[in-house]
Design a protein around this nucleic acid. Structure first.
Lengths: 109, 109
DNA sequence: CTGGTCCATCGGATATTCCCGATAGAATTT
DNA sequence: AAATTCTATCGGGAATATCCGATGGACCAG
């Protein structure tokens, strides 16, 4: 992960519709959800949501897979993990104490 | 952290100038950097960068403190940590196995 | 108090994002 | 083959973001 990958990922998540959709997909791992279900959940028009989905896909946050007539969307957790590591790495670099609280709270897993 | 706090933080970081500035400030914790030094590093005009800095501040990612004629900017790591926890929480919720790789790599701290 | 430095904000031009309806392609159903 | 379902893309209008120079307030030095 570097700036060129992190920026599209951040921009993709920096929109209420896309952030909500991505979180919904994360919660539906690993089965995923069809595009239609996502459109329905968004409350937006089909075309508008399709554009949002393309932004998430281009950022590597969502992967799609054909299933007959539908397309199943799935969150690509690796990209999220890489993004978080990218953001956290600056802290760790010189000053581990900055990341300790983060690590402690993530211990919920 | 919730959507209303996460969205401005994500949007603030989703710009090359702001992301670079924030990362620079993180690396300069806990002393911080003056606004002037940040402007210089950005290569943009003073007014333009000032606007970017205001976006970071409004998102809670940067705190400022007067020091004579200058203003010292500092990264507010708590907000970054909360943002990352907000994004990670969805994974942890039902499926801890999704977060394990993230936790493992963060063990660098 | 005068001049200089540091920074935020305003005004305005350009570029980008966001939304929708309409259209079109791909796949199943009848 | 025809009709239906599912999704991506196009065209265009409205809103927002981004950039800069200019202006002004706060602060310090002389």
């Amino acid at each position: 992960m570097n700036m060129d990958l992190a920026l599209p990922a951040l921009a993709a998540l920096a929109h209420p519709t896309r952030l909500e959709a991505f979180r919904l997909l994360v919660r539906h791992e690993p089965e995923g959800l069809s595009t239609g279900k996502l459109v329905e959940a968004s409350g937006l028009s089909q075309s508008t949501f399709s554009t949002h989905l393309a932004v998430l896909a281009k950022a590597g946050l969502v992967r799609s897979e054909k299933d007959g007539r539908q397309i199943i969307q799935r969150a690509h957790i690796d990209t999220l993990r890489d993004l978080m590591l990218f953001l956290a790495k600056d802290c760790c670099q010189g000053r581990a104490e900055l990341c300790e609280p983060l690590l402690a709270e993530l211990a919920c897993c």
